[in-house]
């Protein structure tokens, strides 16, 4: 009993005050596409293992978009993009109320 109490005392509080802390720098989170850099080769669409990438017509222009609700955050697209138009960020807070929102960003 004494040992248990001593252990609890020594460990102290480990609970995080901030409930939504940022992820580690290496964390593979939200994927950001730079439409300026993208040359439209669309190799990434073939590489994506979960079919999360597709093209969409935005303001009269075919653009690459990612559906975060399908994405498995493997980072293959970013690794293989010759133009470095796809970047992984460590942003992990992606909850959304409607699927459309997850698809369009």
């Amino acid at each position: 009993m004494f040992e248990i109490l001593r252990k609890i005392w020594r460990t102290g509080t480990v609970t995080r005050r901030q409930p939504l802390p940022p992820a580690a720098a290496k964390y593979r989170g939200k994927i950001v596409i730079d439409p300026e850099r993208c040359n439209g080769c669309l190799e990434c669409i073939g590489i994506c293992p979960s079919g999360a990438l597709r093209t969409n017509c935005i303001q009269g222009k075919e653009q690459l978009v990612i559906s975060h609700e399908k994405c498995i955050f493997c980072g293959s697209c970013a690794d293989n993009c010759a133009e470095q138009a796809i970047k992984l960020t460590n942003q992990c807070y992606l909850a959304t109320r409607n699927k459309q929102e997850a698809q369009e960003r």
Binding site: I4, K7, Y27, R28, G75
Partner: peptide, 29 residues
């Protein structure tokens, strides 16, 4: 409960280490 709490705390510490080293708490990728 003491065992459960300490066990899950240590596991969390190791999974955070995984995230730091490999970018994933379950070492995917």
């Amino acid at each position: 409960a003491v065992g459960v709490s300490h066990g899950s705390r240590l596991r969390e510490q190791l999974q955070q280490l995984n995230e730091e080293l490999a970018g994933h708490r379950y070492l995917r990728g």
